[in-house]
Design a protein around this nucleic acid. Structure first.
Lengths: 152, 152
DNA sequence: TCGAATTAGTTAGCATAGCTAACTATATTT
DNA sequence: AAATATAGTTAGCTATGCTAACTAATTCGA
């Protein structure tokens, strides 16, 4: 353990930064959310679909955990995705379980939906100076790290 | 990194960073949202209350704009805040308009609610090395800047 | 081996939050 | 004065969150 414990980072400063990050996350999502209307799929469905497309098939419970949501909530989200044929279920040996996987159509819709949201960010990012572009990459990397520590 | 005169990032790189930031915002909020249950006030109410506490009294329409939400949605959010006496309305000369302001109790609840969410981040932040603490501050600052550019 | 406990998922019921359309009441413009 | 514009509400839809209580399948343990 190093001695350089945070005398350098008093409670108030950590709070200020924590609050800034919290606020940034809220406002970033508010802005990009406006793009969802043209996709015709809600944010929870979009996010769950993304897990299946990028992370591969898994059970409902696992998906619920990945999305930090309770099983009944995920059950309904998946219900919507099945009705619109973006996700299908496959039986497993354990007949209680199901394996959820994205359909080809689901993967296509996901890319489109995600693109609309992210496009807005891409436009903003492309207007940045070189220095700011480095800041962007560093910020993205830092956020990833920080989130990994939140669960612990 | 090469010296690009760069008005633009390569599309793929900007997309990768944009997607990472989008994903980070989603997952950060998912994590901290768990703290809301103990406050007994939803995220939309909490956020609207924050605008009134930190930004001062304003009309329903202004509040809806600040929160990037439609007037009927804000009308209901405010309804909830009034029922629980966290916000009160004041008449104005223009009898169509109302001025919304936080009550003392509202300000207190806000600080508590916000604290619970942000505390989780603070704990994670305080575990960081000095180098990472600098990254945190830079990331927060960058996010603030980026969001300012999203409207454009 | 068989009954009890556990596990996976669903159903029911409630609350919050988002939207549009259509309404009332007041103010402004012509 | 009449037409138009603005502020906010109401009604009704959808999506998402929760807990409690249920069914069905599997696993455990006496």
């Amino acid at each position: 353990m190093a001695k350089r414990k945070s005398k350098k980072w008093p409670e108030a400063e950590a709070y200020r930064i924590g609050d800034a990050l919290h606020s940034a996350a809220i406002h970033l999502l508010r802005k990009v959310r406006a793009q969802d209307r043209s996709v015709g799929i809600g944010p929870a469905q979009l996010s769950a679909l993304a897990v299946l497309v990028f992370g591969g098939p898994r059970s409902l419970k696992e998906l619920a955990e990945a999305e930090q949501v309770r099983p009944p909530t995920m059950s309904r989200i998946v219900g919507g995705l099945e009705r619109t044929r973006l996700v299908r279920r496959k039986a497993t040996d354990d007949k209680r379980r199901m394996l959820l996987e994205a359909t080809a159509h689901g993967a296509k819709i996901l890319r489109e939906g995600r693109t609309r949201r992210v496009e807005m960010l891409v436009r903003a990012l492309q207007g940045l100076s070189e220095e700011e572009q480095r800041e962007a990459a560093a910020a993205a990397e830092f956020m990833r790290k920080l989130i990994g520590r939140l669960g612990s």
